[in-house]
Write a protein that binds this DNA or RNA. Structure first.
Length: 520
RNA sequence: GUCCUCGUAGUUUAAUGGAUAAAACAAGAGACUCCUAAGCUCUAGAUGUAGGUUCGAUUCCUACCGAGGACACCA
């Protein structure tokens, strides 16, 4: 843990010099000449000028063994150049831990649930609602790598009005709402007449035959498919309502039961039971979260929602707080996917028929490309999807650049008749001297920071960016230097380096749910 | 009208308040007697507008313009 170790050293130095800084940043400079890491703490100290602080701190840090040299740059940056021993240690860690690398203990085995997609079972998954698939799945992988015990869930909204609406749609009566080929398909198979029964029947087929199939093609494995109906059948909804009543967190107004959500920072109170006596979605959702937090004992639950539910976050948070689980719920809002048609943006809508199903896309574009395409974008990005462009450029997707790096390594090892598993230590580390070699090995060691940072802020798009950087350093190294060099020691040093690269690429691709073939 | 996201190169996207704004695709140019040219090297190209905060702003604040979303006793 290079960065963590640095933090300790610097913190100690700051204290020794009597600088009172609560927290400081360790920056990763863009420019190599600015060091492996850099500090801007000197700007934070008020007692002296930044340059003076930097000088004092430099002298103190120079007593540590970790640095090859330390530079100060106007107006007060401290640039740290690490000692080669630090890198050697890091590479050996990779070669030792193998597919377990990086071994992190951020999570301390705490139980986290990631719930994602959870699209209503009223139709096939669209490109829009499936955006959360690669995101949630990869986030779960990251958290697991960071040392959490992770579970994946899909919440099935198989209760309520939309199921009746689905029934009407399948029956094609006056109240029909949804259209599409799947409705025609279900219409031809229907044998009942009651809209609710038909809706239940149809939702089940949609879930089992369409949604689950698509999810499987996306290489996602859920630990739990949770039915909303279960909450009602097992009186969980009634129970949570009774609890809220008992806590005097409800009141009746105009025949409806309200939840005093404002008490918990919400912008308004929320209806729990409508005047017709039926529970609202929110009440069911609070009951669901009681199940997650109380029954399943998750220390934290992360919900990945579409941004159209932004207005509902506060209400659920208030409910979770009322159950005394404040702070254990985190919600990530994914921005919508718009599709481009004839140069115009069109919002995806099941009713307008302006949607592309994920299944259709999966028929034309490899899953690795799809996963990478969605993972690349930050969840705050309003994603424009141009289907024609996606089909045209599928084979130009940068995911191949990464896979190619992996395949090249495998090929070199095969030519050298070396099993990667036989390389267990960087015994010839000192023969790595070229810039391209050093850059590559430094990039390898960034992997653990990438995982750590992503587990903290859920910015999953950091992974594909890192993968591209890493692959780029590898390709550059490959072009500049022959790995199977005639000098045996250099050859061996480079083999050790590429085996470490292979391990990192493998683990990284696995976390993103992307395959790593040895040949292309 | 109020609130939430967002506005960066021709296009799709990056950039925990840090140093010369990064990459891919598209455009133009170059190098193979050598481990996979799905690679490498080079060129051209961008922060919506106007202010403010500060040593420093794509990032924070205000206003405006533009895009998407939300403002239910729907889910």
């Amino acid at each position: 843990m290079i960065r963590d170790d640095l933090k300790k050293i610097i913190k100690k130095s700051l204290e020794r010099e009597g600088f009172k800084i609560e927290d400081f940043q360790i920056l990763k400079p863009r420019e190599k000449k600015h060091g492996d890491y850099s500090l801007n703490v000197a700007f934070e100290v008020v007692e002296k000028s930044p340059m003076e602080v930097a000088e004092v701190l430099k002298k103190r840090l120079e007593k540590e063994k970790s640095f090859e040299r330390i530079e100060i740059i106007e107006p007060g940056f401290i640039n740290l150049f690490l000692n080669r021993k630090v890198f050697e240690k890091g590479v050996n860690e990779i070669l030792k831990k193998r597919e377990l690398y990086p071994v992190l203990n951020m999570g301390k085995k705490k139980k986290v649930q990631v719930e994602f997609i959870s699209a209503n079972p009223t139709g096939p998954l669209t490109i829009g609602n499936a955006r959360g698939g690669p995101f949630g799945d990869t986030l779960a992988n990251v958290l697991k790598q960071a040392g959490y015990e992770v579970s994946r869930a899909y919440y099935i909204n198989d209760y309520g009005n939309q199921i009746v609406a689905l029934g009407h749609s399948v029956l094609k009566d006056d109240e029909a709402k949804y259209k599409g080929e799947y409705i025609d398909f279900l219409h031809n198979r229907v044998s009942e007449e009651d809209p609710y029964i038909v809706g239940k029947w149809a939702a089940n087929i949609i879930l089992e035959e369409m949604i689950k199939a698509t999810v499987q093609k996306l290489k996602i494995n859920y630990d739990e498919w949770f039915s909303e109906t279960w909450l009602y059948e097992n009186k969980r909804v009634d129970r949570v309502l009774e609890f809220l009543k008992k806590e005097e967190l409800t009141y009746v107004s105009e025949g409806a039961i309200f939840f005093k959500a404002k008490q918990f920072g919400d912008i308004r109170d929320r209806v729990l039971v409508k005047k017709d006596g039926k529970a609202t979605y929110l009440l069911g959702d609070i009951a669901y979260h009681e199940y997650k937090l109380k029954d399943k004992k998750f220390d934290k639950v992360i919900n990945v929602w579409g941004s159209d539910h932004a207005g509902d976050v506060k209400g659920l948070e208030a409910g979770v707080e009322a159950l005394s689980y404040k702070g254990k719920l985190e919600t990530i809002l994914l921005q919508f996917v718009t599709i481009k048609k004839d140069g115009e943006k069109v919002r995806m809508s099941k009713r307008e028929g302006t949607y592309i199903t994920m299944d259709d896309l999966l028929n034309d574009v490899p899953v690795d490309v799809i996963r990478f395409f969605f993972l690349e974008k930050s969840f705050n990005t309003h994603l424009n999807f141009d289907l024609d462009l996606a089909l045209d450029e599928s084979d130009k997707n940068p995911v191949y650049y990464i896979k190619y790096a992996y395949a090249r390594i495998c090929s070199v090892l095969e030519n050298a008749k070396i099993e990667a598993s036989s390389i267990k230590k960087a015994r010839h580390f000192k023969f790595l001297k070229e810039d391209a070699e050093i850059n590559l090995l430094k990039e390898l060691l960034r992997f653990e920071e990438v995982i750590e940072d992503t587990a903290c802020d859920c910015e999953v798009h950091r992974l594909p960016k890192y993968a591209l950087d890493l692959a780029s350093y590898f390709h550059k190294f490959y072009s500049d230097h022959k790995i199977l060099d005639e000098d045996k020691r250099i050859r061996q040093a480079r083999i050790e380096l590429i085996v470490a690269t292979k391990i990192v690429l493998h683990n990284l691709l696995k976390i993103m749910g992307i395959s790593a073939p040895s040949k292309m």
